[in-house]
Nucleic acid binder design. Structure first.
Lengths: 233, 233
DNA sequence: CGCCGGGTGTCCGGCACCGCACATAACAAT
DNA sequence: ATTGTTATGTGCGGTGCCGGACACCCGGCG
C-alpha cells in the first residue's frame, strides 16, 4: 500500500502551503535527485525551474568570470533556489550549484509566479527568505573583504552544518576553495590548522565537525549575524 | 499662489503610485533634507522610517564591526532605503549612510507596510528593487574578493555617477575609503592613478568624471553586470 | 602487480594591501 | 599674517594570499 503525500513538506517554504494548495501545486512539481556539482542555474540564462531542497543543499555563486566566483548564499530545506523567477525578469544572475547531494522538489517558473500572485502567505514566506538571502550576501561581501581564510572556512563549515542538519558531510578541498573563492592550497592549510586544534576531522573528502562550539569561536562574527537573521527572519 | 503636488514623484518608486494613491500616502510622508554623512539606519535597531531619495544618494553598508564595513548597495531616486521594513521583522541589518547630500521623502515604516499590502503594483516595484539590491550585494561580494582597488574605485565612481545623474560630486578620499572598505591611502593612490590617466579630475573634495567611457574600461566587469540588472530589473 | 588519477600536503617568489607615521597643502577663522 | 583644521600625498616594514610547481598517498583498474 502507498503512502499519502505528507501534509507538511520537508521543505519549510512548501510547508507554508495548506494541504489543499500543496495538492494542487504538486501536479506542477517533480521530486528530483541532485548530485554533487550539478549546476541548476547559470547567470544570463532563463530560469525554467526553481528548486525546493529536501535533503540537498544548493550554493549560490556570484561570478566575476566563468570560472572565478564566490558563494554568496546557501540554500537548504528552509529555502528555494531561483526565487528571483517570481519577481523581476526570470533571468538568473547567480549560479546555483549543488553542494550537498540529495533530494529536492522541482517546480516550473511560471507555476511559482502564479502561486506567488495568488497565495499571499506563500508570497510573504518567499519574500522573507529572499531578504535573508540579501543579508547573507551583504555579510559575505564584508566578510570577504576583511576576514582571513581560516575564519571564513570555519564560518562556512558551520553554515553548511546548519543547512545540512548534520555534522558529517562529503566534500573536497577543491570544492570548498571554489565556494570561498580561494586557492585549493589555502583551504588545505586552513583545514589543517582547524584539524590540528581538534575542531574538525577530515580525511579524503569526508568532513566531520568535532567541536561545533569551539569552531564557532574560530569563525568570524559573520556566522552569528547571519544566523540570527535566519532565525528571526 | 502655491503649486500642486506633482502627479509623478521624482522618485521612481513613488512614481508608481497613482495620483490618488500618492495624495493619500502623502499625508504620512515628509520631505526631508539629508546631509552628507548622516546615518539613517543602524544595524540592530528598529527601522522607524524609510527614505525615498529625490536628489540624495544613500549608501548601504554591511558591517563586521562598528567601524569596519563595506558598501553593498547604493540607493538613488530609483529606489528606497529601508525596504526590509515592508517584509521580515523591521530590524535593520545594514547601515544607511547619506553619501550624497540632497532631498528625500520620508515615510513611516507602518505606512510602507500598509501600502505594500494593499497596493499590488507598488509591492511589485518594491520587490523588483529589492532584487536588484541583492544582485548588487552579490556582485560586490565577488568583486571585493577578486578585484584590485583601482578597478573597484573606478566602478564605484561610475555607480555614483549613475545614481546621482551627474558627472560632478562632492566627496573626500576618506569617505570613499569607508565605502570600499580600504585605507584612505589606498584611495589616494588609486585616484591619483586615475587622474594621471586623465579619466577624472579631483581636488579637495570635488570629484569630476572627465572620461566616463574610458573610466568604464578601467573599471571591472561588475559595473556592467549590475547596470544591466538595474535596467532590466 | 604496477599503473594512473584524483585528492592532499609543502615549498617559493612575488605583490597588493595593511597599519603606522609623518610631511605637505589648502582653506577658514581670528 | 597666524594659527588651527581638514584634506592629500609619501615612505616603510610586515603579511596574507596568489600563481606555479612538485612530491606524496590512496584506491581502483587493467
Amino acid at each position: 500500500m502507498g503512502y499519502a503525500a505528507p501534509a507538511r513538506s520537508p521543505n519549510r517554504l512548501l510547508a507554508v502551503l495548506s494541504p489543499a494548495d500543496f495538492a494542487r501545486v504538486r501536479k506542477h512539481m517533480q521530486p528530483v535527485s541532485l548530485s554533487l556539482g550539478q549546476v541548476l542555474h547559470e547567470p544570463g540564462t532563463r530560469i525554467r525551474h526553481v528548486y525546493f531542497p529536501y535533503s540537498s543543499v544548493i550554493s549560490l555563486l556570484s561570478l566575476v568570470s566563468p570560472n572565478k566566483g564566490a558563494e554568496v548564499g546557501m540554500v537548504g530545506n528552509e529555502g528555494i533556489a531561483g526565487a528571483s523567477a517570481a519577481f523581476g525578469p526570470n533571468i538568473a544572475h547567480l549560479r546555483s550549484l549543488v553542494q550537498g547531494a540529495g533530494t529536492a522538489m522541482r517546480m516550473s517558473a511560471p507555476c511559482l509566479r502564479e502561486e506567488c500572485n495568488t497565495n499571499a502567505s506563500f508570497n510573504r514566506a518567499l519574500l522573507r527568505f529572499s531578504y535573508v538571502l540579501l543579508v547573507q550576501a551583504a555579510q559575505t561581501a564584508a566578510c570577504n573583504r576583511f576576514h582571513k581564510i581560516p575564519a571564513r572556512l570555519a564560518r562556512w563549515l558551520l553554515v553548511t552544518r546548519d543547512r545540512l542538519h548534520s555534522d558529517d558531510f562529503a566534500l573536497t578541498h577543491q570544492l570548498m576553495s571554489v565556494m570561498l573563492g580561494v586557492r585549493r592550497v589555502g583551504v588545505t592549510v586552513a583545514a589543517g590548522a582547524l584539524e590540528k586544534q581538534g575542531l574538525i576531522a577530515y580525511s579524503r573528502g569526508r568532513m566531520q565537525i568535532v567541536k561545533p562550539k569551539a569552531l564557532e569561536r574560530a569563525a568570524c562574527e559573520c556566522y552569528k549575524i547571519v544566523r540570527s537573521a535566519y532565525r528571526k527572519g
